[in-house]
């Protein structure tokens, strides 16, 4: 327990929130890169369809998204069955840390993919072609050409995905189950305090969130200025 301004604060939801947000950001960067790259280089008229699909979580109310996740991840459903087939002990993702990450990945997907996509669109094709004539393979293309040119995109994607997951409420509410130390995130803890009329705790916890998030955003935008890359 922490004591801040004479108010007792349980730090566990803070750690859970940070772990979920960090893991989600990592996963989103890994799966976001190929999706964003494909979208950025796509010339087919189907591109709009995929762009719209990626943006869908922006439209859907989080509790609705959470409700469908709750239904699709239930222990008798197809997802659970597939996971059991792959060796997961019971296949249930709801009420677990992994379930929260899965939910957050859906929820924050556009926040990671869109900045990456815009960054990738700025990478000149001529540069890639030139590198290829020097027999650069895919890995070195990515690490030595694409990544340095799209640093800002990566930074923005990571920040937005992280921040958006920290502030997540609806999805966590639906699939989390509010288990202390496992799935109880800060947003839920604040909600609980408000519900039980413990306004002092709610205020302090909100203040911690605000200061922390502001510090993160500030340092990232500071870095962003340094990374200002000029192409061409």
């Amino acid at each position: 327990m922490w004591h801040i301004f004479g108010v007792e604060i349980d730090p566990n939801p803070i750690w859970t929130t940070l772990s979920v947000a960090l893991t989600t950001t990592l996963v989103l960067l890994i799966i976001g890169v190929p999706i964003a790259w494909k979208l950025a280089r796509m010339t087919s008229r189907w591109k709009v369809l995929f762009e719209a699909l990626v943006a869908l979580p922006l439209v859907l109310p989080p509790t609705v998204l959470g409700f469908y996740l709750l239904i699709s991840m239930n222990p008798n459903g197809m997802v659970a069955e597939t996971l059991r087939f792959l060796g997961h002990p019971d296949g249930q993702l709801t009420f677990t840390f992994v379930g929260l990450v899965v939910g957050s990945v859906f929820y924050s997907l556009p926040f990671a993919v869109q900045p990456l996509m815009h960054a990738f669109e700025q990478v000149p094709q001529a540069l890639l072609d030139a590198a290829k004539t020097m027999r650069a393979n895919t890995a070195s293309l990515f690490w030595q050409v694409i990544l340095p040119l799209s640093r800002r995109g990566f930074l923005t994607a990571a920040t937005l995905a992280f921040a958006h997951t920290v502030g997540e409420f609806g999805v966590v509410l639906m699939v989390g189950g509010n288990i202390p130390g496992e799935t109880r995130m800060v947003s839920i803890a604040i909600f609980d305090h408000v519900e039980s009329l413990e306004y002092a705790q709610a205020h302090v916890l909100s203040l911690i969130m605000l200061i922390f998030s502001f510090a993160v955003l500030l340092s990232v935008y500071g870095l962003n200025r340094k990374f200002d890359v000029k192409v061409g």
């Binding site: 239930n74 009420f95 509410l173 288990i179 839920i188 909600f191 609980d192």
Partner: peptide
């Protein structure tokens, strides 16, 4: 074994969807 809904409706949902 507890999973907690924020209200009684959500608690019902956990059971109705087979998750609890």
């Amino acid at each position: 074994k507890f999973v907690m809904g924020e209200n009684i409706g959500q608690t019902y949902q956990f059971v109705a969807t087979g998750n609890a």
